[in-house]
Design a protein around this nucleic acid. Structure first.
Lengths: 235, 235
DNA sequence: ACAGTATTTATCCAGCGGGTTAATTTCTTG
DNA sequence: CAAGAAATTAACCCGCTGGATAAATACTGT
């Protein structure tokens, strides 16, 4: 009784604390960049004390690197979960594009973190041994899919898998990462349900048309009728 | 004589000062983002005093917006200088891609500024009347080129010009903007002369193959031999 | 030459922000 | 249950940064 009757002010939970700090830091760094992020806000968001950040992770830059490494680990893990090797080549490429698109949609902080790190010219990434060992499984996957596609006659030409990987990422990444400025420039909401569906159709159509030589429109997921009207609303 | 013999401590040059401030600010904001930029560094780089920034442009945020507006004005001006309407459709698209690629290569600060502004969810762009009136001439240009291409039989399908514009920008923008992290991930220098040439060939090939249905490789600028070897260096 | 204005300089300051110190509380273990 | 280790808290420090003030200097019209 005497032992436990006292009300505890707090409980220990080092692992949980560390996770909450990293999650809060991810949000903060993604929302404000490295210089714009505020250590106090991270602490508050994590339901922690500012001192805890330094106790668990070190200083601000270490915290940032830990967040970045976590982000790469997460996407690589999900990428590994996808096995597309057994699909026929065009279908595999389509799935790959859809996965990339949906991952970026589900994890907008990932885009912001990458942009932030590129603003730093990958200064932190370079000193990370962890990230360098995380090869994307997609490059090898694309290589075998493309090879199979060429052999089966589905594809016209054997593209460099790295180039294709970058291009697929680019089509999705740029659209989402720059949706704010693009929406202002074009005066339309690029993140509406319809706009997103149109973008996905466009990306799949573009890449598969390039690979197969067959017409664009047939790859649209649904409502391909939209694509038959080439004179859309004024811009 | 008596008039001019005195050594001047400084000369007035309001326009020149303003230009130097904006140029220095562009470099600083591009290199460090909005929060990371230092007003003192901008002043030093401009060969000016910190007080001058406030005298000429107002506060830090106004300075940032002025830089952003200048960046958009500059690219729009160069875009207008290109008239592609008279070229045959595939050639016009190729030129468009080359221009975009080269502009980004020549103006890396532009990429960084856009990323910075997107991190702010276009907060500043939204309050700029100037930028909103700066429509890119490329969208209308693409629309007519695509229409002509479809009519002449060069192109398979009439794409939405906005989607195509975004895709072309994406292929170049992402590669260059993210070259730092991508170079670490892939363990190769994506900015070497050869890598840049390969990227340009790939982009032109991808887009034109998609539009025309013809094979990828034929659009390469030179050394198309590279593309015939589909099993490149290990990644 | 003189007065008034535009431009530039030197200096200051209040608050913010990352980081630190030291004390307090909880857990572990013998 | 005692005592040391681990985790957490509260309070403080101080350099830096954006911004402000006022004085000095250059230009302009009369």
């Amino acid at each position: 009784m005497a032992k436990t009757k006292r009300i505890l002010k707090w409980q220990r939970d080092p692992e949980g604390m560390r996770l909450r700090i990293l999650e809060a830091a991810k949000q903060e760094f993604a929302a404000h960049g490295l210089a714009g992020a505020r250590v106090d806000r991270i602490a508050a968001k994590a339901g922690a004390n500012k001192r805890m950040l330094y106790y668990h992770v070190g200083n601000k830059e270490n915290l940032y690197l830990a967040v970045l490494e976590g982000a790469y680990e997460k996407i690589r893990a999900e990428e590994r979960g996808l096995d597309l090797e057994h699909l026929d080549p065009p279908e595999a490429i389509k799935r790959l594009i859809e996965f990339t698109w949906n991952y970026f949609l589900r994890n907008p902080e990932f885009l912001a973190l990458l942009n932030t790190e590129n603003l730093q010219r990958a200064r932190h990434l370079k000193r990370s041994t962890k990230v360098k060992s995380l090869h994307s499984p997609f490059v090898e996957m694309i290589r075998t899919v493309v090879t199979r596609g060429v052999e089966s006659g589905d594809f016209q030409v054997a593209v460099d898998p790295v180039q294709l990987y970058i291009s697929i990422a680019a089509l999705a990444f740029f659209y989402l990462s720059n949706s704010a400025t693009l929406s202002v420039i074009f005066g339309r909401d690029l993140l509406s349900q319809q706009a997103k569906q149109e973008r996905l159709d466009h990306m799949v159509g573009l890449v598969l048309a390039a690979l197969t030589g067959k017409s664009f429109a047939i790859f649209g997921r649904n409502k391909p009728a939209r694509l038959r009207v080439p004179l859309p609303q004024t811009v």
